[in-house]
Nucleic acid binder design. Structure first.
Lengths: 224, 224
DNA sequence: TATTAATAATAGTATTACTATTAATCAAAA
DNA sequence: TTTTGATTAATAGTAATACTATTATTAATA
């Protein structure tokens, strides 16, 4: 198979493809750093422009607003995760091993070696945990969804569904369990970091804890 | 036992107790309606003031900002849910029946008859589904949490934990499963309404679907 | 070299979030 | 009853944010 490791995100998300110019690439790279530092609410195009010595208007030529920029970043992440799910799990022996590896992919930050883009993967993972739900928990979700901009998330969910169904074809809720796995990975990681009383995590090994919890949840759900 | 059905929310959340004046009560009531209509991002104090024929500054005398106002509304909801969990489940025969009723409380909008405040319960439930995660998924979560303003959520979570532990004392993740139940109720209801491909819900009976899914998840997790 | 096209920077505006100050109301003390 | 003090709300702002129209600059092509 011939494939290139670049994830083309839906054209509707940007005004101008950030991958097409050096400035565009720098905007996305610096945006990931700054959203991680400030949080999405405090992140503005003006601050980003100052940070990278360009102008606000130049950034607006690539993205309509910061919400679309976040959506672009998350689309990249979801596409990349789908890629990992497809190609990293394929060689594994059985559906149990595949599902276990899947949980590790969802809970552990991406490794720096994986992928080609020089985005900070640690930061990206933290952004996914803290900010991802903000792209769909909005009044405009219907109009946004019409441009298929959530397709990478749905595709990832569909892939996980396939794994679930191949492990237990009789299971009634493969899609819901998939999205629950993804969302719960995020919420439990966030809670274990910031509101630990909402979890059973200890002071350390929070990632391991969440992985253990999700595996328990997943395999018990899929028991015959 | 002597109790009154008014949920005193943490004083740190407001500048002036909205329950203490007629204007304060009207502000909260109208805020619920307007957040539901506009979504939290588009909701502003200026719009709320115009809606109810008062001034922006008057609202600022009660709440520092709209984030605190949302926190106030959610605290009221979480306290009310804990009340329902304690007093509605208590008469039920066994832990299985209690957990089943719990899932129904989490997934179904509050009934208008329940509680005393004349908040729109349908709107409130929809706000909880769509907006609740926005109060903790922020950079300032640590400072916010220091004032114990998430205590009602943690208390609710602790109550559910007790139910879980009484059903299966050996279960390893009672708190995480509790928060997962709450969060998943919200995310699956949202997805079934707006991004149905992320679920296995059909065109109708979405609430029933989510309840069925959560019960399956819960009881399989708690199997010995 | 002149012309056109692409790109970025300047300089705005409208809205939002928030606050300092002033005005109005009301209750208690003189 | 009037005066004072305290509480409350409204006016009129400011700083920051989100976004855009226009101008300037650079690069490509005729």
């Amino acid at each position: 198979m011939d494939y290139s490791l670049s994830f083309k995100v839906n054209e509707k998300i940007y005004l101008r493809d950030p991958e097409s110019t050096e400035l565009g690439k720098q905007i996305v790279k610096n945006a990931i750093d700054l959203i991680h530092t400030l949080g999405f609410e405090h992140f503005t195009f003006k601050k980003l422009a100052k940070e990278m010595n360009t102008t606000e208007a130049s950034i607006y030529r690539y993205f309509e607003n910061k919400h679309r920029m976040l959506l672009y970043i998350l689309n990249w992440y979801w596409s990349y995760m789908e890629y990992l799910v497809v190609f990293q799990l394929q060689p594994l022996a059985n559906s149990k091993a595949k599902l276990e590896r899947l949980v590790e992919l969802l809970t552990h930050p991406l490794e720096e070696s994986e992928g080609q883009a020089d985005y900070n993967k640690q930061f990206l993972h933290q952004i996914v945990i803290t900010e991802s739900s903000k792209v769909y928990l909005v009044k405009e979700v219907k109009e946004i969804n019409e441009n298929a901009v959530f397709k990478p998330y749905k595709d990832l969910c569909a892939r996980i569904s396939e794994l679930i169904q191949s492990h237990n074809p009789a299971y009634e809720f493969p899609h819901s369990l998939s999205s629950t796995l993804i969302e719960t990975a995020h919420s439990q990681l966030f809670f274990s970091q910031h509101l630990p009383k909402l979890t059973d995590a200890g002071k350390k090994n929070k990632t391991e804890f969440v992985a253990r919890y999700l595996k328990d949840l997943l395999f018990k759900s899929l028991q015959a």
